[in-house]
Each structure stands twice: as C-alpha cells, then as structure tokens.
Amino acid sequence: MRTLNDEVEVLRRIPLFASIEPSKLKLVAYAADRVELNDGEVLFRQGDAGDSAFILVSGVADIVSETEGAQVVVAQLRDHALVGEMSVFCDVPRSATVRANGKLIALKIGKDYFLELIKEFPELAGRIIRELAFRLAKTTADLAASERAVRK
C-alpha cells in the first residue's frame, strides 16, 4: 500500500509543486485522493459540474471534445500535467471529457482545497498562471495555424 511519504515523493517530481516545502507537500498529498483508471475509463465528462482538479501522476490522458455525439481527441496530456482546473477557477461545467489512454494514475484535489492551496502558496499560483499562459499561447498558435490552413 502506498503511504503519504510515497506520494510526497511523487509530488516532489511535479514541477508545479517544486517550490512548496516538503512538510506542506505532505498536506497536499493528504488532501489529494489518488485515483486509478484503466484504459478507456473517464476521469470526468464534458458538461459535468466540476468540483475538483486533477494532477496526472503517470500515464496518458486524452482530452476529448464531444460535439453532437462525435468524439474528437483534441489533445493529449501526460505526466505531471494539471487538468480540470478550468471548472474549479471559473465555476463552469467541464469543457471537455478526459479519458485514460492506457493505465492512468491521478491525484484529485477538491475545489475548495485547491483554491485554499493557491491562497496559501503564491508560488503555486504563479506556476499555474505560467502553465495556463503556455497553454493559451499554444492554443492561439494552433488557432492561427488552422486559420491559415483554412485560407489556403
């Protein structure tokens, strides 16, 4: 059975938490529920109310966009990625479905606690903003690329 200390070790390897001191990391590990998914199982579904964010510990997750029954994999996330944070920050339903691609292990952090963490550790907030900014930049670039492709 995995103990808190094992999970702290896992968390330490995640860049998001790099700046948090080990004793506090234990609290994060404690607050997080470890969830294990088999291939094809769903972490959360598009349109569901979101009450928690997830950090992928190992494995690959498909981000699936569902439109009128059709499912399109729009992205893939792997180790140490943060997912599901949008619903937590913005109080909106899940914008996409997240599905395990192969065996997936993730840490689930409840919404209230996640917001509390950010309040308590500004460095964490900084890192999350960075991550989100990167994603936005990537999305913008993708959008531009697809627009160019359409024009051609």
């Binding site: 004793s23 607050a31 209230d112 606690y113 509390e116």
Partner: peptide, 13 residues
C-alpha cells in the same frame, strides 16, 4: 499543527 485556527483546510480536508 501549523495551520491557523480559521484555516479552510480544517473544513475541507
């Protein structure tokens, strides 16, 4: 042990 008495953590986790 180090948390403030009013810390949300007591309520949430």
């Amino acid at each position: 042990g180090d948390l403030a008495p009013d810390s949300k953590i007591f309520e949430t986790v």
